[in-house]
Every structure is written in structure tokens, then in C-alpha cells.
Write a protein that binds this DNA or RNA. Structure first.
Lengths: 150, 150
DNA sequence: AGATTTTAGTTGCATCTGCAACCAATCTCA
DNA sequence: TGAGATTGGTTGCAGATGCAACTAAAATCT
């Protein structure tokens, strides 16, 4: 027996399957992240960590706060992810004039890990382009241009 | 003092910041998921759960295995996420002829929650389009066309 | 039929993520 | 200067995710 409830739910489900942006973006994220994690795994780094290493190398000495802004990561997430890498001696924490703030830099061994993982990143990057097209990066960039005010 | 190590690491970091697809896709995912979770939160559902409800409504009675394939979710992830919803009485588990397999359907209350959350989803969908452009869905679809062999 | 392989699902472990509540340091302003 | 607001970071809690190892059931092969 098909109830009115069923019909409504089924129609809604069809609309969502056909249109939901989050559904698509999340699935794309899983697929792409999986490629990078597979390849980087041999180097003992996750794509999340690799990105954080790149950010700290690029911006350091940098506050966790700023990392969170650039990467759109909640401050507590940054706090924890950084701590894991501090434990591994990849990241060093310094104080700053502002007694609240901390400043992060890569250690030598952090830089070594980062650079050593770069070829794996490159391979993942290549495989990803083969899967989703070479212009994915610029497409996503265009989507997010300036816009995340939140 | 700038060492050779520094220079190499810095150059690598710049390339990654400029080009890494995973970096962009993951940030997009966080931004978009955040919008949906904010809006759906009032209904007591996450976007992950909402997507699963839609999938089960649409495909049910359906095996967890198949859910994993369609959504590109690891089987253990499906197992756990489904269990949370079984605990909430949103999803019912049935046996099947194949003694290994299980079959999932939404309960009435699961359908009610799903349908009740639909307006919130619609709002999130609208906000997301405002942020990233209305054609995001089809763009991401094109990226993933047929391709996830994994 | 019996042994081997494959398939579906579960569980232990670890990482990633966000929210709310919290602490300490700084800033604002009356 | 001192009270209140803001800012940077941490912690408790909970969900989302994947891998490896495991169990049970089914399928395959000899």
C-alpha cells in the first residue's frame, strides 16, 4: 500500500537526489580525498596534514587563527590537527608579543617530510585530473571567489 | 638564514597552494556542508543523515552495500551511520533471502523527519546557490560523470 | 560434497570536523 | 583605571570517515 506519506517522501527524495549540491560536493570530496590519501599514505601523511604543512610553510610564522581563516577550518579543528603534528615534531610553536596568540613554523623534519611527500602529491594530482578533468581547480576556485563571508 | 631546505619547501608550498585540487575541493566541502548543517540543525538532522534518508527512501528496500556504492561511502561508514538512524527509529532493518545481506527502509517517523526537514534543505540549497552559483550541481556532476571506478 | 574464495556486514582504531563552554590575555571605553 | 567586551586558544562532546581485521553466509571450483 502506498500512503500519502510515501508519495510525498518519494517525491522529495527524487528532488534531492537530482538537485542537492551538498550531496554532490560531499561525494566529490570523498572521491578526491581518497585518491590523495592513498598516494600520500606511503609517506605517512594525510591530505589534511599535507595541506596544513603547506599552509604553515607558506605563511609561517603564522597563528592558528589565520590558518583557520584561509582554510575555512574551525579553530578547534586547527588546534587539534596542529597538535598532532607538533607531537610528530613537524611543527614548532612559538610565543608572540600578544600573549594570547601562538605562532607556528615547520621544523626541519617537518620540511623534510613535506618535501619528501611532494612527489606523491604530484602523482595524486595527476590521477585526480585524469578522473575529474584538468580544470577542476580553476572551476572550484571560481565557485568560491571571494565569497565565503559566513 | 635561508637554507636550501627552506627554499625547496617554500617553492613546493607555493605550488601546492596554487594548484592542489584536494585543497580546493575539501574547502568547498566544508563551506557547503556548513551551510546545510546550520539550516538542517534545527530539524535535528545533519546533511549526512539527510542524504542517507533520501537514499534509503529513494532506493529502499536497499542494502547498505548499494548505498555505499551510490554515495561512495566505505561500508563501515554506512554501517555506523545507518545504526545511528536505526537507534533513532528512522530506519528499519529487514532480512533478505541472502543471509548476508540486510535491507533498509525508512520508518514512518523516518519519513516524517525527512519530509519535515525538506524546507530547511531547500533554504540551504538556495543559500548555497547564492554563494557558489546556481550551476554548481551540474558542474560537479559533469566532473564525476561515470568516472569513479576506484 | 568439501575446500577455497568471495561477499556483506561489524568492530577496533585513528583521524577529521564542528559546536558549546570555558580560560586567559587584550582591548575598549566610560 | 577598572568593568565589560572581544579575541585566541583549549577541552568535552558527538558525528563522519576510512582501513584492517574479523565473522558469517553464499558462491565457486574440484
Amino acid at each position: 500500500m502506498t500512503t500519502k506519506r510515501d508519495q510525498k517522501a518519494q517525491a522529495t527524495a527524487q528532488e534531492i537526489a537530482a538537485e542537492c549540491i551538498a550531496f554532490r560536493v560531499r561525494r566529490l570530496n570523498r572521491t578526491v580525498s581518497h585518491i590523495y590519501d592513498q598516494t600520500l599514505g606511503a609517506q605517512g601523511v594525510t591530505i589534511s596534514q599535507f595541506g596544513l604543512l603547506a599552509a604553515i610553510q607558506l605563511l609561517g610564522p603564522v597563528q592558528p587563527r589565520e590558518i583557520g581563516e584561509k582554510l575555512q577550518l574551525e579553530k578547534s579543528t586547527v588546534c587539534r590537527n596542529v597538535r598532532l603534528m607538533v607531537d610528530k615534531k613537524w611543527v614548532q610553536v612559538h610565543g608572540s608579543e600578544d600573549g594570547r596568540a601562538k605562532l607556528l613554523t615547520l621544523t626541519r623534519s617537518g620540511q623534510d617530510v613535506f618535501v619528501a611527500a611532494a612527489p606523491a602529491w604530484e602523482a595524486a594530482q595527476k590521477n585526480t585530473k585524469a578522473l575529474v578533468g584538468a580544470d577542476v581547480g580553476s572551476i572550484v576556485d571560481r565557485l568560491l571567489e571571494e565569497k565565503h563571508s559566513s
